[in-house]
Design a protein around this nucleic acid. Structure first.
Lengths: 197, 197, 197, 197
DNA sequence: GATGAATGAGACTTCATTCAT
DNA sequence: CATGAATGAAGTCTCATTCAT
């Protein structure tokens, strides 16, 4: 089979998995159902993925890779740290907000167990993402737009926590709003904090 | 059997479940193992809990209840919004930081699936917690220590996101630090934000 | 506890068992439910009966005993074989038709497995019953009202088969009719058969 | 897998189930034992049957279908109602008498509970059987060989009751006789009844 | 490479029975 | 005698994975 068709089949399996994981959860989704949804035979899934867990891994990796690539493009015109921060926040939200099912997998299904969490939190891609945010904050310090005494690594995690909470809330929400609509408030909070001073 | 002994057995089962859920994950933990760890027979677990999921529910509810009760006591001496905020942040971290296994269950195992997440995120206790934080921020607005234009509900969630991320990082971390040591940075970040201005 | 109260408790358990066996079937009925229905504790059931199966046995035996006793009384005025036959058929139907739940247990639940069937079919009481019917038929032969060439034992079983089928049909029927209303047709069929000659 | 091999495997499972249900009873037979006896893995049973109860259903349906088909063939040469009656009685007994284990399942295991009984007694196949017998009796009325005042439907059930009782007795009997040997007595009884007149 | 029937280990839950109180 | 919490063996069904075709 030519590579293009193979790749296409792999994608179909991955797409089916996202759909089903989001709907029924990782543990309740059966490989057979993924196969059926992807219009392949059960055994075929194993031609593309070693195990059910590896499918989850692949969803994470593929999506992160794509997200990081998008990030590179998207950052092109942004110069100042604040512009860049705004961009990266918007990208984070746009990216997750584009596909609720994928977002569900990211916000919930990828966090099944300590083992999973551990693997993902140590992943090259997530570290790369954190490094980019941290770099922006460092740049801000140099520019004088970010306060000198800020613990950059801590702030990076804090920002991630806020974005993550926003995304999870969106995924679980009954209301029908766009996730990106949170961008402004997130930036505002992150920059100025709560205090009146 | 006198109530005290019954209660004690229930606690033993719950404690065993926390230990095992934290170690092996919810799905990989067998009821039989919980029973063995709690020194009761398998069937006994079902005298106290309808199902494995109900055990998870009970861990959540008991711990949240205790946390909320603690919150009430602990807030006693705190008058100003900022004092109270400080207290509640410390309480959140102290409470989770006290027991790494329980924290693991809270930060990871309780987030198994959209269904679970949904149930927990809509729980009376979590809402009560959010309401308390929101009330503090409102108080701050009245005192003039919190800026007027702040979206209180959003800020509550953002703060929770930061605390949650800190807790999850602590749970997954190899380093041996006290979770409460993050309190200062969290307060600092939450109050002042990133920006230099 | 005085004997009367003991006996009464035993009866309550038996009555509860009949009700539940008829409704849910023997295997699906739990001892605990029988106890609850009888207003005693689970363990108490075991003071009166060795096991769940023994409860079934007791239902069979008690009811058969009562039926046979009734038979003796009831037969009093009947002299001729045909009168007696008529009486015994009516008694069979009246007795089962009186209590649909007990009838359900007799027609269905007592026939659970070859082992059960075997035990009941060899029971002293059932044999006694068959003997009485056979005796009536023998009497009929002597009187000249029953044909000489009849295989009495076979005819006894055949008659029982007809009664049994009628009872089972009644138990399973949706229609609301009295089981005794079959008596006439049964006697008619048994006496004259199908044939026109 | 070609259909023939699939069908063969299904049959093996069914045959194993008949053997074990007859020997140990439905409730005491484990799916794992059926599988072992049929030389397949436990899970394989579930490829062919949804549940243990469905296996029992399949035994009933397959056997009844075969019985009805046999009935059609066998009736070919019989013209008069009495010939046909004779044939159908013989067929009933031959069919059950051919395989004691299958007969045990039919006479005992299929009658587990009111629910089961209900389902089977309302089955298309059993009704078809009753209809055939009833049609024969009607034919007899027209021919003048069956008495005009006979309640045909009742007589059908009565005849079935006699056959059923004979079959059950055979299944439970220690003596080693052929079930068909009851045919003559059944016909005799059914035609002429008990009475001397 | 693709298929999907077969595998069989595994786990939750049930419930008859026991026994300390 | 009565209680009912505790026991733990048992069994159905599931499903990730394999492999012969």
């Amino acid at each position: 089979m030519e590579p293009a068709r193979k790749e296409e089949k792999r994608s179909r399996i991955l797409a089916a998995a996202v759909r089903l994981f989001a709907g029924d959860g990782f543990y309740r989704t059966r490989i057979g159902d993924i196969a059926k949804t992807a219009n392949v035979a059960t055994g075929t899934v194993y031609t593309y993925f070693e195990s059910k867990e590896k499918i989850l891994d692949a969803i994470f990796e593929d999506s992160m890779e794509q997200f990081l690539a998008l990030g590179k493009e998207d950052m092109a015109g942004a110069e100042t740290a604040l512009e860049r921060l705004q961009r990266i926040v918007e990208l984070h939200l746009t990216n997750l907000g584009r596909d609720r099912e994928l977002a569900t997998v990211f916000q919930i299904e990828l966090r099944h167990s300590a083992r999973f969490m551990d693997v993902y939190s140590r992943s090259r891609q997530l570290r790369e993402y954190f490094n980019r945010v941290a770099a922006i904050l460092e740049q801000g310090k140099e520019e004088g737009t970010v306060r000198r005494d800020l613990d950059v690594w801590f702030a990076t995690k804090a920002l991630f926590g806020i974005l993550d909470e926003a995304a999870t809330n969106w995924v679980l929400s009954d209301r029908n709003y766009r996730l990106t609509s949170d961008a402004g408030r997130i930036i505002d909070f992150a920059l100025k904090g709560l205090s009146a001073g």
